[in-house]
Design a protein around this nucleic acid. Structure first.
Lengths: 138, 138
DNA sequence: GTGGGTGCAAATAATTTGCATTACT
DNA sequence: AGTAATGCAAATTATTTGCACCCAC
């Protein structure tokens, strides 16, 4: 869509690789990791390097274009939807899903009041077994 | 106190290193990382190795004796208080605190209902600036 | 034209693992 | 005695960085 505009609006230099990485993230609900982004972008830019993907998702995260979801130690995934919302991940199949239904807006201000912190960011993550994986026993 | 009993009750082999590591975690509110646990235990067992600390906190986490708090990529801290409760960390000084006041028990069951997952674990983490660090401008 | 981005390979850093030795039950 | 834990050092793995070349502005 307008990934190029999103970059230009923030004064980020526009490159085809960046447009493609942003596009991948904006057009999936899969919450891909760096490897998955890399594989997908590679189909269009076979020469792209993993380092570029790492650098780019880091830049986009700083700029608030995407958000990082930190799963188990040593593995992050990325979400093109940037509003703060909880996530849930299946401990068996590894899938990550958004939880739209859970309203948590009021929690942050309650936290500010009770802790005296200025709150900038929240991460609400649930871990369990998804419907599919529950069915297959365990 | 009764760290030895806590280990024995779970059928975990009791060693002085394990008692000491558990004791460190049960007697602080600092949410120390592996390095901090290592330094502190080293005062009593100068020969202890980092690997032992890593292995032990992993074991204790599995056994539910402590809980892991995953901060930025590549850094975990540990909490001797094992009930599920939110945490808040200061982006400037790195301190981690418990948020006792925030009641989140009802959220998990609401998540189970809306997602169809069987929820086993939750992580609720806030990031911001603590009272101290806010005062020093920036 | 110039500064910043990309691709490559080497470097980093937290964590883990293999193995010989030592300690718990 | 037998099994499992410890300490050490080497291995692992996600991520990062240095650098030469190329591209967007």
């Amino acid at each position: 869509m307008n990934e190029e505009k999103a970059l230009r609006d923030r004064g980020i230099k526009v490159t085809p690789q960046r447009i493609e990485i942003l596009s991948v993230l904006k057009n999936t609900r899969e919450h891909p990791g760096v490897d998955q982004i890399y594989s997908q972008v590679k189909e269009i830019f076979p020469a792209i390097s993993l380092a570029t993907v790492y650098n780019t998702v880091e830049l986009f995260t700083q700029e608030g274009l995407i958000q990082e979801i930190r799963l188990a130690r040593g593995f992050s995934r990325y979400d093109g939807s940037v509003g703060s919302h909880p996530h849930i991940t299946c401990l068996k199949c590894g899938k990550v899903e958004d939880i739209e239904e859970l309203k948590v807006e009021m929690l942050a201000s309650s936290v500010e009041k009770s802790t005296g912190y200025e709150v900038l960011k929240e991460e609400i993550m649930y871990f369990g077994y998804c419907h599919e994986c529950k069915r297959l026993d365990n």
